[in-house]
Design a protein around this nucleic acid. Structure first.
Length: 572
DNA sequence: GCCGTTTTCGGCCCGACTGTTTTCAGTCG
């Protein structure tokens, strides 16, 4: 797949043209193409061969030709032309907060700044401050921006972002005159990682609330402080994280929430629709001429455009606006639909909770069942269970299950898929289990696709655990063709897992949608290892919704009896 | 560069904050 490679090229072309002062809309067109390629799960080379590039919204004749040129020749003349004459380190400077194309271009033209070292030099010797439109404060901001840039601006996990935003919100709720308050931005859209944290609040005295905001415990630096908007850095472990707060009146709260939730692409398309209908939409409301026709709540904003309210998780410009217009929006799966958790560990293997505590936690969440899926015998690193210990666990499960009405522990296993694609327990053991998750834990580059396909063909396997194997904190994942895995799951009537742990979220939103389209059911599991594990379900649910999953697409929305029936009646 | 049931040309989302200005440009989201 050359998708990511091409996306990087188009990003670079956009940056280069931006610095060279090319028309903004041309720059935006390249950046949009880059984003489309990043999101695309179809192989761009296949699409190019089939002459289908121009059927993608946002890819026109010009960019299609450039893609074709690149996949056939390995080069792209437009790219070479765009970066020609620019020093190799110049465009990287655009990633420095507070530094944009205009300033980079100016520093290059006037002072021959070609990269980070040059930039530091012209700051130190004062020559940058001498340029037109520059001053001491601007230079100081760029200097601080370099600090942030060098410290690394990695996105944080959705879990960490949720914790920070909840702390800030509970602090702000004590401020006088605060009304509605919500996390907006990518956190509200439940993206798997989050950059900055955006918070929107309703209040009359914005200046006073912002004044409170910039005094929050843990504050590292104030980036901006106005009457309606504040921006700060807070300390997070060893680094810093930006939190933006916006204050609006109650009459525009809905419009502002829509606006600050994004995504940018979704909002741009929405504004285009408004414009075509003779309306104007901003964070203050929807307007017909000078008359405001909506803004108090999001339903009204979408309603004014003739659309039903669109759930935040769908707002990525991936077809949701068209579906909303045609009345074809999915009814996304909700927390209340989930009747159980299909992947939990106990201290019998590498978990920390006893079986009984795990069950009580699940009962208190209102679940009807959970699948106890400790590791299998080959997983020595994780205290994998021998057949004997597995049988002991069954006895304990039977004993505990007599205790409750309306709740069941399911006998399960997270069985290793071995190097040859065989499973770590023989069929005569697997056949006694209620739920079998088959996972790859070793040999990440060794025939993973074929091994997963073979596991799916085993009649006792129900789902594949964390199918991509990637860790958001850094591990790339297996060398696996997920399309073939989805195909095999469909052919064998099996499920695939959505692992809800914040560092996994695997399958991701894009593959979930493909699996759904292929008719594959998704089993949502938390991969719980400790007492805070079951709460991870909120992140899994968020990703499921981003994957357009409905109640019917998720295996664990079924009753325990329904689950048993599914296992019995699926194709063998 | 993309796109079209108002357009194949002429649009393309819009406002806050900051800093350097004396009316506005750059950056960000």
């Amino acid at each position: 797949m050359k998708n990511k490679e091409l996306a990087a090229l188009f990003h670079r072309i956009g940056d280069a043209l931006d610095v060279k002062g090319e028309q903004t809309f041309k720059v935006l067109a390249y950046r949009k193409a880059a984003r489309i390629l990043e999101d695309l799960t179809d192989d761009i080379e296949t699409l190019a061969r089939d002459k289908k590039l121009e059927s993608i919204d946002g890819i026109g004749h010009g960019i299609a030709q450039k893609i074709e040129e690149y996949v056939t020749t390995g080069r792209m003349a437009k790219y070479d032309e765009a970066v020609a004459g620019l020093p190799p380190g110049l465009l990287d400077l655009l990633d420095i907060p507070g530094l944009g194309a205009k300033t980079v271009s100016l520093a290059y033209e006037e002072l021959h700044v070609g990269g980070l070292d040059d930039l530091k030099r012209v700051i130190a010797d004062g020559s940058l401050a001498g340029l037109r439109g520059m001053g001491d404060k601007k230079v100081e901001n760029i200097h601080k921006g370099i600090g942030l840039f060098e410290q690394g601006h990695a996105r944080i996990s959705i879990c960490e972002a949720a914790l920070i935003s909840e702390a800030v919100i509970s602090y702000l709720k004590k401020a006088p005159g605060i009304g509605r308050i919500d996390a907006a931005g990518s956190l509200r859209r439940m993206k798997e990682t989050v950059g900055d944290i955006d918070i929107l609040a309703e209040g009359r005295n914005g200046a006073a609330i912002i004044d409170d905001f910039v005094r929050i415990p843990g504050l590292k630096r104030i980036l901006a402080q106005g009457d309606t908007k504040g921006s700060i850095l807070v300390a997070v472990e060893s680094s810093e994280r930006q939190v933006d707060l916006r204050i609006v009146g109650s009459a525009e709260y809905g419009a502002a929430l829509q606006y600050f939730t994004g995504s940018k692409e979704h909002s741009v398309k929405l504004r285009g629709l408004a414009k075509a209908a003779g309306l104007k939409i901003s964070e203050y409301g929807v307007f017909r001429g000078a008359k405001k026709i909506a803004g108090r709540d999001e339903e009204g904003v979408y309603g004014a455009l003739g659309l039903p309210w669109i759930p935040p998780e769908l707002r990525e410009d991936r077809g949701e606006i068209e579906c909303a217009r045609d009345g074809r929006l999915p009814r996304l799966v909700e927390a209340a639909d989930l009747r159980g958790d299909l992947h939990c560990h106990t201290r019998a293997s590498d978990g920390r909770m006893p079986l009984e505590d795990l069950a009580e936690q699940a009962r208190s969440r209102g679940y009807a069942y959970i699948a106890v899926c400790d590791h299998s015998r080959s997983a020595a690193y994780a205290g994998g269970l021998t057949i004997e210990r597995l049988e002991e666990q069954w006895a304990e499960i039977d004993r505990l299950n007599r205790r409750w009405k309306g709740f069941r522990l399911l006998k399960g296993s997270e069985v290793d898929i071995l190097g040859d694609g065989k499973l770590d327990f023989p069929d005569k053991v697997l056949k006694h289990l209620d739920f079998v998750v088959a996972s790859v834990h070793s040999g990440f580059k060794k025939n993973v696709t074929a091994r997963m396909v073979k596991a799916l063909e085993n009649p006792w396997v129900d789902t594949i655990g964390h199918p991509s194997g990637r860790l958001l904190s850094g591990r790339r994942g297996y060398d696996v063709d997920l399309d073939r895995v989805i195909e095999a799951a469909a052919a064998n009537g099996k499920a695939l897992e959505l692992n809800s742990h914040f560092d996994r979220l695997d399958l991701n939103d894009l593959y979930l949608r493909r699996a759904k389209d292929a008719g594959v059911l998704i089993s949502i599991g938390t991969d719980t290892h400790s007492a805070d594990g079951p709460a991870m379900i909120r992140f899994g649910l968020g990703i499921a919704r981003r994957g357009w999953l409905e109640k019917k697409d998720v295996l664990n929305t079924r009753t325990a009896e329904g689950l048993v029936r599914w296992r019995k009646t699926r194709k063998r």
